[in-house]
Design a protein around this nucleic acid. Structure first.
Lengths: 244, 244
DNA sequence: ACCTGAACACCGTTCAAGT
DNA sequence: ACCTGAACACCGTTCAAGT
């Protein structure tokens, strides 16, 4: 029919781009073969011509975001100036974070993957290059890589704000535990009970909110936390490094 | 019938214990309502009497492991001696890690959860208590919490060995990328090509394997990496802390 | 109070068949 | 070369019904 003639043929790339867009807007649980196919105006079975199975789809989706990070990090590298290794890595990690902010579901998906995208390996290779170029032994560079964890990819292991889950972000405004199947194990929203079950966190929140300029802005600024952690690690490594 | 009389009634706790055991042995993808019910010699629908839905099951499963960590960390606290805050936290994190080694799928599940188990909050609260007791400001304690990430729970964000996926662990022996749907993006296993696509990592591996006592043991000792990262953070925080 | 059978909507995937 | 229809096995979940 006529409509058919007007649509571009599918390709692995088009499928993956559509998949990333779908997850960005609808959350990870919306990523089904049938749903994705519908977005592409195609039958679910058509996808199998371009991707082996859903595992391959997930791998490809991660790979696509990693490529986007690689591009952003590359642009940082192009900027002139003879910055220190610390500044360069810091800028790279922060650039990666900017990309990651648009795909908050990636940490969750990545941690479930069994294979490492090739792009990730190339990226971490370049980091080792930066480190040894700055006088790191290969041994320390190796330790550094593990210590960095996912920071080079722009995200930290955040226990308290798992935005990874594509659900409602409104729920995790504070440190208050959400509804749980077992009433006995649930943290109370009642301030008095809260102070009883988590006395130090309560005082900490009070102190932080008092210090903050705008108390309504929320008390966990993840940008600040991210930069603090990056600097903490970079400073610590700098002290351990053997200058040449 | 007779068999029925011999089996204990179900309970939320029994269901969760069975669920953890199932995932430990069969992997996370084996955790289905029907499969879990079969393990308990019951119909799938019976589970809904004890758990609201599968989300509640996953929450409960995480909660169960967190409780196990809490118990292990508690035992560390009981040991006498006036150890420094650094030693105490280090021991706690390592104790948590011992528990986590038996449940390598937890990081993956936890990162997908939308709510934080109450036990996690209580645990992090006690960490804040340790920190402020050692002279930390609440502000620095807050930063420290975020910097720690998941280390207090006994695992690091491991990009290179995602054992989280309940699948085959044999595949992630090194830094070599697994099979990928796109041949062009796949890292080659051919050593020469490997050296070309990841020159620094290749040299790093060579240096590390040369230094290691037993080269066959594998070159990423996650216990050592874990302790290094913990110490790096604790040392860095110690320098930022205001002694009283 | 605790468990179940039948049924529903929705998955991923295969395979032979269309153009 | 690229896409599809029909079918299969397997999900989570509801609901009325059993004991």
């Amino acid at each position: 029919m006529a409509a058919k003639a007007f649509r571009k043929p599918l390709s692995r790339e088009r499928v993956l781009t559509a998949a990333v867009a779908l997850v960005d807007t609808q959350g990870i649980q919306a990523l089904t073969m049938r749903r994705l196919a519908a977005d592409l105006h195609v039958e679910a079975m058509s996808l199998y011509y371009h991707l082996a199975d859903k595992e391959a789809l997930l791998d490809g989706v991660v790979e696509t975001v990693v490529a986007e990070i690689g591009a952003a990090v590359g642009r940082v590298g192009e900027t002139g100036g003879d910055r220190s290794w610390r500044t360069r890595l810091r800028e790279q990690f922060l650039a990666a974070r900017q990309v990651m902010l648009g795909h908050p579901w990636v940490p969750g998906v990545l941690s479930g993957r069994r294979s490492i995208p090739a792009g990730v390996i190339a990226y971490y290779d370049s980091i080792v290059g930066t480190l040894v170029g700055a006088g790191f032994s290969y041994h320390l560079a190796h330790r550094a890589l593990h210590a960095f964890g996912s920071l080079p990819l722009g995200f930290a292991q955040e226990i308290f704000s798992p935005a990874s889950a594509g659900g409602d972000v409104a729920a995790d405004a504070g440190l208050v535990a959400q509804a749980d199947a077992d009433p006995a194990a649930r943290a109370e929203v009642d301030p008095a009970a809260m102070a009883a079950t988590m006395p130090y966190l309560t005082k900490m929140m009070a102190a932080e909110i008092h210090d903050a300029a705008d108390p309504t802005l929320g008390w966990c600024d993840s940008q600040v936390e991210f930069e603090f952690t990056v600097n903490l690690l970079l400073d610590g490594l700098d002290r351990l490094r053997v200058d040449r």
